[in-house]
């Protein structure tokens, strides 16, 4: 059985849905960030799959860009996590509702 692009796209969709479910359902802020990484990773998989299918390396270049954005996002997000935890003593996003710090 030949592995086609549809296999990779279905896998990418499954990973994206799991990540979106984690972002919506989990209460811990760190796990929410991890689920965001899952979603970005699944988008990367779709980019690279299309890059192979179309014989065009632009998809891989965009994967590198996404990786850069993910790294910056995680750095800022985890700095915010540490600041929130030292300030409020919790990471439960149901508790962190107030806009006024």
């Amino acid at each position: 059985m030949i592995v086609t692009i549809e296999h990779y796209l279905v896998l990418s969709a499954i990973l994206f849905i799991i990540g979106a479910y984690g972002v919506i359902i989990r209460k811990n802020l760190v796990i929410v960030l991890m689920s965001l990484e899952l979603m970005l990773n699944s988008a990367n998989l779709a980019f690279v799959a299309f890059s192979k299918a179309l014989g065009n390396m632009t998809g891989q270049v965009f994967m590198i860009m996404t990786l850069t954005v993910a790294a910056a996002e995680v750095a800022v997000g985890l700095a915010l996590v540490v600041a929130i935890y030292t300030h409020r003593g919790t990471l439960d996003i149901d508790v962190l509702k107030m806009l006024k710090g």
Binding site: V3, N41, V48, K52, Q60, M63, I64, A71, A75
Partner: peptide, 23 residues
């Protein structure tokens, strides 16, 4: 498998290395 060898190496170095250590 998708012939993206450079991207695979970057994935392991940056994602599985740096970002995971941060987490």
């Amino acid at each position: 498998f998708l012939l993206a060898h450079f991207v695979a190496a970057i994935q392991i170095l940056v994602y599985a290395g740096a970002i995971m250590v941060l987490f």
